[in-house]
Design a protein around this nucleic acid. Structure first.
Lengths: 210, 210
DNA sequence: CACCACAATCTATCACTGATAACTTATCAC
DNA sequence: GTGATAAGTTATCAGTGATAGATTGTGGTG
């Protein structure tokens, strides 16, 4: 074993890890605009100002870029939900606000939401489906946080069901349905968006709480 | 204008339009198994027992195959909902049965459901997003049928909201959320499926009806 | 300074994709 | 038979994700 002096040559241009962020920025913008599968690595590279093979110095595959963005999206969601949870007494009105945090997240980060929840499984069925992939772990964390919020309403005796996890999964599914459809099918003749969101949240509240 | 005698040469092998069905069968199986984008036209051709360019005698693009399958999926859904509507008095129990028709459809035809509702928009954002594409028209028809069902509960004075369309869209979104997540993320640690479905439907019923 | 090690990046290329063009084959009407 | 035509083929295109190997530039060392 030799004693290697610490090394960090050639920082110019991409300044080390900034390159990685530039690539992710470019990828997120393009993925959200056109969809993951419709974006080529050459487009990402051009947007990031580097050659296409240079991407592979930072990411093993294109899906890995999507996976990283997915993990980050979950982190933002967790942060939002956590922030909404502080000084939060369980009332029906606060319940609706909590649900709206999720929907607002989806509406404000459609690119990230697409990547996180609406990506089709890949050629080998891997990506999010892999039980211990990083995106799946991040997703479980986000769901755990969601469960905690629902749990507060449960211990306050406000939930209609006894099982917190069942309630949380049903609620999450209900929220996801609206967000994903609004993102995926914007051309559908939806009623006015705010009206629909408010009605949807009210419906979930009436259904989940006593 | 000449008077063309009716012609139909060369029926052998693919026997005319049966070829088309064989192609769609192969495509549906593969699309559902691996996802639309992960299936190549060569795989479809091999499964259908023809050469790859032969596909393009029946479909202009690969997406057109998906679009056709999408339209058919909607047709099945409409048929199911229509069948469930006959001799159907608006009671809470029947409401839950109607909702279950939708979820059962998704669970029994995950391939078709994927194609119909969970396809990412293409490179140019066309496909379902196009306002007058055939899949979009079929989707609107299915939603109209769903509205009719919800309308029956509305005229019976059972819905919590006045606006039938708002109620129907919120309900559809709620149903879609569960179905799409169960299909797209089967590895997620869901609670027992039947328990979750029953809880979800009950939640929607409590939220949508008085 | 000269020199080198090495990380970062590039050019060239691979196998594969969706799609098209041009050719071949088999069936029918006559 | 014979020509017309539908159906299917082989050959090929540009573009994709990914890899191999050459090239460049920086920092540390003598």
């Amino acid at each position: 074993m030799k004693t290697p002096t610490t090394r960090s040559p050639r920082k110019a241009k991409g300044q080390g890890s900034e390159r990685r962020e530039e690539i992710l920025d470019a990828a997120l913008a393009l993925f959200g605009e056109k969809g993951v599968h419709a974006v080529s690595t050459r487009q990402i590279a051009e947007q990031a100002g580097i050659s296409q093979p240079a991407l592979y110095a930072y990411f093993a595959t294109k899906d890995d870029m999507a996976a990283e963005l997915c993990v980050r999206a979950f982190a933002i969601l967790v942060e939002r939900m956590c922030a909404a949870r502080t000084n939060h007494v369980p009332t029906p009105a606060n319940f609706e606000r909590a649900m709206r945090v999720y929907i607002d997240f989806g509406m404000e980060h459609p690119n990230a939401y697409r990547v996180a929840f609406m990506i089709e499984k890949g050629p080998n069925g891997e990506f999010l489906d892999k039980t211990n992939s990083r995106p799946m772990i991040a997703g479980k964390e986000a769901f755990a946080m969601f469960c905690e919020i629902v749990g507060e309403y449960h211990v306050a005796g406000l939930t209609a069901l006894d099982d917190v996890v069942v309630t949380a999964q049903a609620l999450w599914a209900g929220l996801h349905g609206l967000v994903s459809l609004l993102i995926a099918r914007p051309e559908f003749p939806w009623v006015e968006r705010e009206t629909l969101i408010a009605a949807h949240i009210a419906m979930l509240r009436r259904g989940a709480l006593k």
